[in-house]
């Protein structure tokens, strides 16, 4: 894959932002994930050339943190918390139900590109477990029966936009 010129510029600009940082990699990757959406090998090569950090090391960081993604994420990113409290309250079942209805596994994106399913480790909402977060919006005490409705709501939203 050859990146578009604009894409290369975005990545280079991000690297330039942190050129004086003693350890800039996490900051660069974090901004790249936000602004570019994902961090494929080609993007990592540019970051490596700009910073002098070997590609293997960058790849190691990208695959270590679940926040970073090697493939494009869907329009709506569904994060299901399976931290201790949510897990005890059935978070795993919530995750499985989303996976079953969207026909994807955690980390994958649905074929229509609308949904990405992520398993999260504690989002700090233990009081309202089991919790999920969709593009930053948190849903409390998610019942299995509510899940089809939540998915439908976002399908409708996507059509309207």
């Amino acid at each position: 894959m050859v990146l578009r010129k604009e894409a290369v510029k975005i990545i280079k600009d991000i690297c330039a932002r942190y050129k004086d940082e003693p350890s800039p990699l996490m900051l660069i990757l974090s901004d790249t994930q936000k602004e570019y959406g994902y961090i494929p090998l080609e993007v990592q090569e540019i970051i490596s050339a700009e910073t002098g950090i070997p590609v293997a090391e960058i790849y190691g960081v990208v695959t270590f943190y679940s926040f970073f993604s090697l493939t494009p994420k869907g329009k709506y990113v569904i994060g299901v918390c399976v931290g201790t409290a949510c897990y005890v309250k059935g978070g795993q079942n919530v995750l499985d139900k989303f996976g079953e209805l969207l026909k994807i596994k955690p980390g994958q994106t649905s074929e229509d590109g609308l949904f990405t399913l992520d398993a999260l480790r504690c989002i700090g909402a233990c009081g309202i477990a089991p919790a999920i977060s969709i593009n930053g919006k948190v849903y409390p005490k998610v019942a299995l029966s509510a899940i089809p409705g939540i998915i439908a709501e976002y399908r409708k939203k996507a059509l309207e936009e």
């Binding site: 090998l41 070997p54 590609v55 293997a56 090391e57 790849y59 270590f64």
Partner: peptide, 20 residues
């Protein structure tokens, strides 16, 4: 001064490998 190898993935799935 090359850096072909690195740690990859996390936890039990960690391997030492060239990228990807």
């Amino acid at each position: 001064g090359i850096g072909i190898l690195g740690f990859e993935n996390r936890g039990f799935k960690t391997i030492v490998s060239p990228v990807a």
